[in-house]
Simulated scan of single mutants.
Amino acid sequence: MLSTGALRAHLLAARLAGPVATPRETSLRSYRLFAARDPRLLLGLDPDRVWGERDLLRLMADKCGVSDDPAHVSGPDVIDPERTLAALDAFAERLAGAARRRTPVLFGTGHPHRLIGFYAGLADALSAAGCLVLTPARGRGVDVMTRFGVRRYSLDYVRGVALVREPGVRAQGSAAGAHTHSPLPVRAVLEAAVEARGALPELVVGDHGWVCGAGQLGIEAIGLGDTDDPALFVGEEEGRVSVAVPLDDGVPSDHYGPIARYVLNRARLSR
């Protein structure tokens, strides 16, 4: 069993929290674009209020622990490990509640190379607890706006976790998916579930557009967010995202294993 102290040490050693690899310049650029309502940063969220850059900086300082000094414009950004631990406990509570109710759950990630293993472990545990882990729309095409224009992606699942694949990639069942912030994949999945008259998720677990896109549609959503992902934390502040966990979402995939074990233990889903 991983203690809170041991996980805190791991977060800092792996740079999941503390000084992280996300540059301050990248975070500030994201806040500027979110304030301008750039859809690439909204991730499917339609905020209720007007969020200026200073508002976002104060929010991210409160939610993540980044510096709230607008004059701090370069160097690594910082995530407070205590905020990460508190959010992980809340995240675990939501998973425990889903397990008790045996609710249908959807997992999806825009970071398949890094986070498939983390989400897959949670999906396995919820499935074993009696939850239906949903996998609709496998193979369905989704048009996603990228910096290269609109590109066609296809939906797939790896161990119960949804992702999108780039055109021409046929490695079905592998984690070789595309990095995306788009909310369109989760909308396509939900549309397919409705068309098939199948179960709809009562909880969505993931990151980026999977969380914000689902939360905007009124589905309970929990997920992970980096310092340059203000949409998740705005969504949490406005009540559309139930839990947003601040951590670096770009470290090597094996560093997320201890976090999964901690969450499952806190949710009493360890086997």
Rank of each mutant, 00 (worst) to 15 (best):
R94F: 00
V142Q: 10
A123H: 14
A137M: 06
L95E: 03
E82W: 03
R147I: 01
V50I: 13
R100A: 10
G139W: 05
S154D: 04
S154I: 02
A120V: 07
L57C: 11
R54V: 10
Y157Q: 02
Y153T: 01
S154N: 02
V78K: 04
R151F: 01
C64R: 10
L59A: 09
A96G: 15
R138P: 00
A98D: 02
S154E: 06
A92K: 02
R83P: 03
P136M: 04
L88V: 07
D156V: 01
L122G: 07
G75W: 07
R101A: 14
L126Y: 07
V150M: 04
G121R: 15
V73E: 13
G52N: 11
D80N: 14
T146F: 01
A87F: 02
D62Y: 12
D69S: 09
V133K: 12
V142P: 11
L95F: 05
G160A: 03
L59W: 11
T135L: 08
G130M: 14
A120K: 08
G108H: 07
D80V: 05
R94L: 01
V133D: 13
R83G: 04
D55S: 12
R100Q: 11
Y157T: 02
A96I: 00
T146R: 03
A128E: 14
A128M: 09
R159P: 02
Y119D: 11
D69T: 03
L57S: 12
A96P: 00
R151E: 11
E93N: 02
A87I: 03
I79Y: 00
E93I: 00
D68F: 00
S127K: 13
H111D: 00
D55R: 11
D89T: 05
A129T: 11
L115Q: 14
L59K: 11
E93D: 12
R140V: 13
V66F: 06
A162G: 12
G139A: 05
T146W: 01
C131V: 06
L115T: 08
R102K: 15
C131I: 03
L95I: 02
F148N: 12
D124H: 14
L56Y: 06
L59P: 06
D89N: 08
G160Q: 04
V78F: 15
G75T: 08
T84V: 09
G121N: 11
R138H: 08
V73P: 00
V158W: 12
A71V: 05
D77C: 09
H113P: 00
S154H: 12
F118C: 11
L155I: 13
I116T: 15
E82T: 05
A99R: 06
D124W: 13
V133Y: 12
S74A: 15
G149L: 10
P104W: 07
L122W: 08
T146K: 02
D124N: 08
G65Q: 12
R54K: 14
G108Q: 03
V73H: 04
S154M: 01
Y157N: 02
G52S: 15
D89H: 10
H111Q: 10
A162R: 04
A129Y: 09
L85P: 10
R100S: 07
L106S: 03
R140S: 10
L132A: 15
